[in-house]
Nucleic acid binder design. Sequence first.
DNA 1: TCAGACATGTAATAAGTTACATGATTAG
DNA 2: CTAATCATGTAACTTATTACATGTCTGA
Lengths: 195, 195
Amino acid sequence: MDVKTLCLGLLSIGEACGYDLKKEFESTFKHFYPAGYGSIYPALADLAENGFVRCREIPQEGKPDRKIYRITDAGRRHFRNALCNTSPQHKLRSEFLAMLYFADRMEPEHLSVLLDERLEELRAAIVDIDRIEQRTDANTAAGARFVAGFGAFVARAAADYIETNREALLEQARESSTGAAGKQTDRTVTVGTRA
Amino acid sequence: MDVKTLCLGLLSIGEACGYDLKKEFESTFKHFYPAGYGSIYPALADLAENGFVRCREIPQEGKPDRKIYRITDAGRRHFRNALCNTSPQHKLRSEFLAMLYFADRMEPEHLSVLLDERLEELRAAIVDIDRIEQRTDANTAAGARFVAGFGAFVARAAADYIETNREALLEQARESSTGAAGKQTDRTVTVGTRA
DNA sequence: TCAGACATGTAATAAGTTACATGATTAG
DNA sequence: CTAATCATGTAACTTATTACATGTCTGA
């Protein structure tokens, strides 16, 4: 499930140009599968080269010609195949959590800002997803609703956790920063669990 | 906050060799910042080259010499700096959610398997994190506990959501697959929200 | 006897991000 | 007048992943 396959999937719903697809990535997929022009345009070129989509150009003035891509039968088969055979990964890489692991090494004020910023991001994401969800109706594909609901629900959980545990973490960070008086306590503890 | 900085952070807790760091990544960081030997060893070499860590070799028989890395003062400064100046990203790339977006295009049986597999992964992660959490004591850094708690809490939320909405999604997928009789309904709906 | 822990690394590859490059029209 | 929308793409760069390469010892 790379950007290419995802573009193909979107084109299986209806024809679109790269710009349209980018908008779709910005709304629906933003929170779990971000992609920019730098991935989308090469993906479309590649799909066309493989015969999975066909492209027709609409001349325009003042702008580059609009290149509208439409999926082919081969493309449909390919996508259906991808849906059957891919075992989907769920990859998270959180610098936020990585930094928080070292919370006792940070200035409490800075730590506080970090937590607030993340909370803000989460709240913004929730609002964003809720807005998408409200645009759905009975005709909206069930998957789209499920996915939006999932995103909002998990983001709420994350925000709740931070709100709940924020003070305790800050408290302990304050303790260790006063104890160490800004200097690092070199605990000479070995990393890992070697007996 | 790349693998390099994270290695440096771990070495600021205590000296270790690449193998030790990998174990740490496998336990604590696995769920939000995975890294393999292919990232860790080059990272250590790089840190050494920059003077952020020093390396001493313990000769061993039958195995490669153990290369124990210890952080330098410059390294400590560098890490403290990184903690202050990095604005942490939180990146998610979920093929799982991307595929579910197209749930109505999948065989209901396959969809069901996908959901179950993800649930299994989540449950395994929860067990794993809980085990890590139980190993913590009063001396454990507050950050480590916060991060573990976060992971478990959010994973539980994700599992709950899937369990709650699983049947509804499957139901709707069954409807659309009978309706379309295996064939794709070409909805000629354009992607996006163009009026 | 066989899997897993111990211990190092390199090289090829894949994949996506960022910055660059261009420019008209339109709504506030 | 200024920001946003429309519309295309390329090229360099960064980063991590995967597979390769080697070999011993220990516990089940």
